[in-house]
Amino acid sequence: MRGRFAIGPTLITVAALLYFFVPLYAAFQFSLQMKRGTLSFAAYGSVFQDGVFINAVTFSIMASAAAIILGAILVVPTAYWVRLRLPKLRPLVEFISLLPLIIPPVVLVFGQIRMFGSSSYLPLTTSDWGTNVLLVIGYVVLSMPYMFRAVDNGMAAIDIATLTEAAESLGASRFRIVTTIIFPNIRVAVVSGAFLTFSICLGEFAIASLLNRPAFGPYMVQLGQDRAYEPAALAIMSFALTWVLMALMQAFAHMKPGQKLFFRIPFKKKSPTP
C-alpha cells in the first residue's frame, strides 16, 4: 500500500547495499592511507608513475580493441546469417557461444599452447607477434558469450528479414546490406558487446599470464604480491572504469538514430549527397 513503510524490502535493500559498498569503501579508504596519518591520493600517483603500469594498460587496451574488432567481424555476420537463413541452428550456435563460460580459460590456453607450441605445425608461440595473436583469439573466445548475446538481441529488435529483402529489391549486394543496413542498426548492441569485451579483457589473468604477455591482469596480480596500497588504488580505478563503461553502454542503448551522444554540432543544411 502506498504511504505505508515496507519494512521487509527496505531491510533487504539496505543489506544488499551494505554488502556491496562496505568492502568497496574499505578498499577505497585503505587506498588513501599510503601516507601515515593523512588521507591522500599518493597510492594513485605512485601507480601512474610506474612505467610498467602504463605499458600494461596500453597493451591491454590494444589487445582488447583487436579482440573487439575481430569478435564483431566474426559474430555479426554469423548471427545475421543464422537468424536469416539457418534459424534451426540457433540453439546450437547459442550453446557453442556459451561454452567459454563452462570451460575454464586455463583449459583454453593450454589447448592453444599444445596446438600452436614450438613443436607444432604452426608454432605461433615462438614469436611475440604470434603469441599476441593467440592472446587476442583467446580474448575473442572469452567474450563470445557476451558479444553473441548482445548482437543477437540487437538483431531481434529489428526486422532483419524484411530489411534484407527491402535492400535486396533495391539492388544491394549481401556485403552492402550487412555493412550499410544491418551493422548500423545493431551498432548499439555491438557497442555494448564491445564494452563487455573490454572489461573482461582488461581484468583477464589466466591466458595473458600463461602466454607470458605484459597485460594488465598479470600486472595487477604481481602488484598485489609486491605492494600494499597500490593494489587497492588499482581496484578502485578498475571499478570506476567499469562504471563509466556501463554508463556509456546505457547512454548508447537509449540513443535514437541521428542523435549525438553528448552534444549536437549545429549545422545549417546538410546536402543529401553521400
Binding site: I158, D159, T162, L163, E165, A166, A167, E168, S169, L170, G171, A172, S173, I181, P184, N185, R187, P257, G258, P272
Partner: peptide, 24 residues
C-alpha cells in the same frame, strides 16, 4: 537473385532503414 531483377517493392511493415534519414 532479387538484387539483379530491377524491381521495386513495398512491404506491409514499411521496412524503412531505421538508421537512414528519409533522404538516405
Amino acid at each position: 537473385r532479387p538484387n539483379q531483377r530491377k524491381i521495386g517493392m513495398m512491404f506491409q511493415s514499411y521496412a524503412l532503414f531505421p538508421n537512414l534519414t528519409v533522404t538516405g
